[in-house]
């Protein structure tokens, strides 16, 4: 899952980016509205965390411009907690609204819910045959047995599981699992996929030659 954080307070931005990375997300950052809008329009993020008070282009204007082109889930993050601000934010297309100071765990939970719902999944648990993926706890069970995955492996699994039955291209996977700073080695994906197959069974992820991967 790849997330864009747009926040002008640098300390807060690095904290958020680090925290989200530790949660297994690929994170891009932007320190002002213009840069944020450019990135938001250039990539298909799974979610955007957007501050309202931004230099160059404020959060509301950014959201308005973005909504003309994209449906990326947006979580507004702001110190402005008046009702008018919240209503305005939600009305112009924000999917959620979190007021500063916020709790990181709550922020994560809201982001998970946003990403899940964007894929049409209402539940936090995804069951594929005997494999259960708990997107809230970020755990994977096969039967009763818990399977240990690396953060990246888990992200890959969750990404495919949320798009169950659909073929996911390698490009899409690259775009959603790595952030802009990751040096993307071409065979990295194959390594992750083969590791997941070792842990969950070789048939769990099928390869469509020339197309991509899929969880049936």
């Amino acid at each position: 899952m790849r997330i864009l954080v747009i926040e002008d307070e640098r300390d807060l931005l690095t904290t958020l980016a680090q925290a989200l990375e530790e949660e297994g997300y690929a994170v891009d950052t932007a320190e002002n509205g213009e840069e944020g809008l450019y990135k938001a329009e250039s990539w298909d993020y799974d979610a955007i965390v957007l501050d309202v008070m931004l230099p160059k282009l404020d959060g509301f204007s950014l959201l308005k411009k973005l909504r003309a082109r994209k449906r990326t889930p947006v979580l507004m993050l702001t110190a402005r907690d008046t009702r008018q601000d919240r209503v305005l934010g939600l009305d112009i297309g924000a999917d959620d609204y979190v007021v500063k100071p916020f709790d990181l765990l709550e922020l994560f939970a809201r982001l998970r819910a946003l990403i899940r719902r964007a894929q049409g999944e209402a539940q936090a648990k995804i069951v594929v045959e005997d494999v259960q993926i708990d997107t809230a706890a970020r755990t994977v069970h096969r039967g009763k047995e818990e399977i240990t995955l690396t953060a990246r492996e888990y992200a890959l699994l969750e990404f495919l599981a949320l798009r169950r039955g659909k073929v996911v291209t390698r490009t899409m996977l690259y775009e959603h699992l790595f952030n802009e700073d990751d040096s993307t080695l071409s065979n990295l994906l194959d390594v992750h996929v083969s590791n997941i197959r070792k842990k969950l069974g070789s048939e769990f992820i099928t390869t469509r030659r020339g197309h991509g991967y899929c969880i049936e």
Binding site: D11, L12, L16, E22, M53, A79, R80, P101, F102, L104
Partner: peptide, 25 residues
């Protein structure tokens, strides 16, 4: 008042989220 609380909330969020993140492991 709204502006003042906004200005205070931003550094407060930095402190709270930084410490929360640091203490998480």
């Amino acid at each position: 008042t709204a502006d003042a609380s906004h200005e205070l909330r931003t550094p407060l969020s930095v402190i709270l989220s930084q410490t929360q993140l640091s203490l998480s492991r």
